[in-house]
Write a protein that binds this DNA or RNA. Structure first.
Length: 583
RNA sequence: CGGGGCGUGGCGCAGUCUGGUAGCGCGCAUCGUUCGGGACGAUGAGGUCGGAGGUUCAAAUCCUCUCGCCCCGACCA
């Protein structure tokens, strides 16, 4: 039992000024976390208990699929990272340091390298495969912009798992096991995740999924079809691109368009729809300029472009870089260009007689046709899906949603095993690289997501599965009242429940408000009034009504309520695409 | 990295423009009265005004530099 009078925490009456997001505000106010720097937090006892509860849920689901827990170090010598190429490719997100001998070390932001090294050491034969390992370990990622309390931090605990299979077929089965385990873990925490296809990004894999908690506070945009049959992160999402008929190709012509620098202006000025224009956008790949041409009614999707160009450091080009290449912003054209890489979205291939810039201020070209008038160095789909677009597979309308990425799964293929010579001896007597997977869950982000999902105007409403304590006893009075509250706490603990006892001398209002703020699932109030009635007042945090329960039945009542609440978190329900809840 | 905002006691803020004894509410401590939804009274503790330099008789306030934090964007396993 923890007494509130001794709890290492402090609840705040006023909202901290820095907190703009619900979970951040409530976790600070209720005394769960305390910032030390940007994106760096201490977990106070309440926060740590939630952390441990979440860890335990995830651990049980990992163990359930036969994944074995271990612990890998945070500080790594750089050589493994040199061998996979990530020591140089990752960039400043990974913190680096030198040891006393001047050797390069890294603070691990993930553990593919070390896991692969361990895997090849242990599993020398196909007879030992498949095998999976996981750990809960501190990650440090030097994020350019931490935000939202625990939602995006620089130091955090991640559950990361790594699988080793003999071949793609086996890995597919292992991957499915992880998907199932993730779904169960999130549901046990009270979150029905949206599962979407995602970008493998720096993981270098061949396929990936993300699990999202749908909430306005999220940073990721997801594209979901009406039936839920298609769901993807917008970074990789595809959609049908409507085709417009602008007639047979006509001779190219230069027209004056004074002062018309935007697509909308030019289209209006020349009396055409935006889909009959060619939009030019310029990116800097890190060492070269890329001229991106896309139909005027579409937006460039930078993640897709980055992937197509294989340019991890892609960014919009600066004006000086445009001038140096002889391009005129607002009037730029791919026609007659030779010194820059031209990337063409496939929307341009089906369009005829487009309006494009003339590379001359105040002039555009009409009846520009690809590939008659200009060539592409690269072609592909680099368009951003927009709300209302239709899915490729089932021709369904697509909707955009926002979510917090609480977990991800990656099919790594043999990227790491190839580079680290991680091989097993197969039944055929030959050596083969492991087919690997990696799977992450951010513990703190998951806890914060639960708060985003479960709260009201008064505070947090923890699901029983991850609450820091099961029962909040509000003791209103001293003497007999205090004695009975203590006795009740003992009985509840005897029954296997964890208890936070508010034994402070504060007024009832203060105590009730703190109880609501902290958000334990069940509240029991003990006072003169309840003592006289040989009863205890019982109120689930999520309920609006208080009940008077006979004193000799209260423990049973709480136990049953908790059991029912746990049963309501059904990990085995069929997968459905959730919608954003009104809470 | 670009744009915006903010650093004054544990929390929320005023004071800065127009330089002149550092304030308010909450919280905290002691005493008393209260006692079922953030009680009341009295007394009290607590701040080198983020830091450094400069201007001035005098700087929270003006100038320069710097550090940090928040928000938007860029970025992002």
């Amino acid at each position: 039992m923890q007494r509130m009078s001794r709890l290492f925490a402090r609840t705040l009456r006023d909202d901290p000024a820095e907190a703009a997001i619900v979970s951040h505000r409530l976790l600070l106010r209720a005394g769960y976390i305390r910032p030390l720097g940007a994106g760096i937090y201490s977990l106070l006892p309440l926060g740590w208990r939630v952390h441990c509860r979440v860890v335990q849920v995830v651990r049980e689901e990992m163990d359930r699929i036969g994944c074995q827990e271990l612990l890998m170090p945070v500080v790594h010598p750089s050589d493994l990272w040199e061998r996979t190429g990530r020591f140089h490719s990752v960039g400043s997100e990974m913190a680096r340091l030198k040891d006393r001998w001047g050797r390069d070390m890294v603070l691990a932001m993930t553990h593919e390298e070390v896991a692969t090294e361990l895997g090849q050491w242990v599993a020398s034969s196909y007879r030992q495969l498949p095998v999976c390992i996981y750990h809960f370990q501190t990650k440090f990622r030097d994020e350019p912009r931490p935000r939202g309390g625990l939602l995006r931090v620089r130091e955090f605990t991640m559950k990361d798992a790594y699988s080793f299979d003999t071949d793609l077929e086996s890995q597919e089965s292992t991957y499915q096991d992880f998907m199932d385990a993730y779904l169960r873990a999130f549901r046990r925490c009270g979150i029905e995740p949206a599962i979407v296809e995602s970008d493998a990004g720096a993981m270098q894999g061949s396929g990936a999924h993300e699990f999202h908690c749908l909430t306005e506070a999220g940073e990721d945009t997801l594209v979901v079809s009406a039936s839920g049959r298609y769901a993807a992160n917008i970074e990789i999402a595809t959609a049908q691109k409507p085709v417009f008929d602008h007639g047979e190709p006509q001779p190219i012509e230069k027209v004056a368009t004074p002062g018309q620098e935007t697509i909308d202006d030019v289209a209006a000025y020349l009396g055409v729809e935006t889909h009959q224009t060619l939009k030019a956008v310029f990116y800097w790949t890190g060492d070269a300029l890329a001229f991106v041409a896309i139909r005027g009614d579409l937006q460039v999707n930078e993640a897709k472009l980055r992937s197509l160009l294989q340019a991890p450091d892609l960014r919009l080009a600066a004006d000086q870089e445009l001038e140096a290449a002889g391009l005129v912003a607002g009037y730029a054209s791919p026609v007659g260009l030779s010194n820059v890489t031209v990337v063409v979205d496939d929307s341009v291939e089906s369009a005829t007689n487009l309006v494009a810039g003339a590379n001359e201020p105040g002039f555009h070209l009409v009846n520009v046709n690809y590939p008659r008038d200009f060539q592409a160095d690269l072609r592909g789909d680099i368009a951003q899906v927009q709300s209302g677009d239709r899915s490729v597979d089932h021709d369904e309308p697509l909707e955009l949603m926002t979510g917090i990425e609480i977990g991800n799964t990656f099919k790594l293929g043999t990227y790491y095993s190839d580079r680290l010579d991680a091989q097993y001896l197969g039944a055929d007597g030959r050596r083969h690289p492991f087919v690997m997977g990696s799977y992450g869950i951010g513990v703190g982000r998951l806890a914060a997501s639960v708060v985003e999902r479960y709260h009201d105007a008064d505070g947090i409403i923890w699901p029983v599965s991850v609450a820091p304590y099961d029962v909040h006893i509000v003791q209103l009075g001293t003497g007999d009242v205090a004695a009975d509250a203590e006795r009740l706490a003992g009985e509840l603990e005897e029954a296997g429940l964890s208890v936070l006892l508010d034994d402070r001398g504060d007024s009832a209002g203060v105590k009730f408000n703190d109880a609501d703020l902290i958000g334990l699932p069940f509240r029991c109030t003990v006072s003169r009034r309840t003592l006289a009635a040989s009863a205890v007042e019982f109120k689930p945090r999520a309920a609006t009504d208080r009940q008077s329960i006979p004193r000799d039945q209260i423990v049973q009542t709480v136990l049953e309520a908790r059991t029912a609440a746990l049963a309501a978190l059904t990990p085995d329900a069929p997968v459905t695409m959730p919608t954003i809840s009104a809470s």
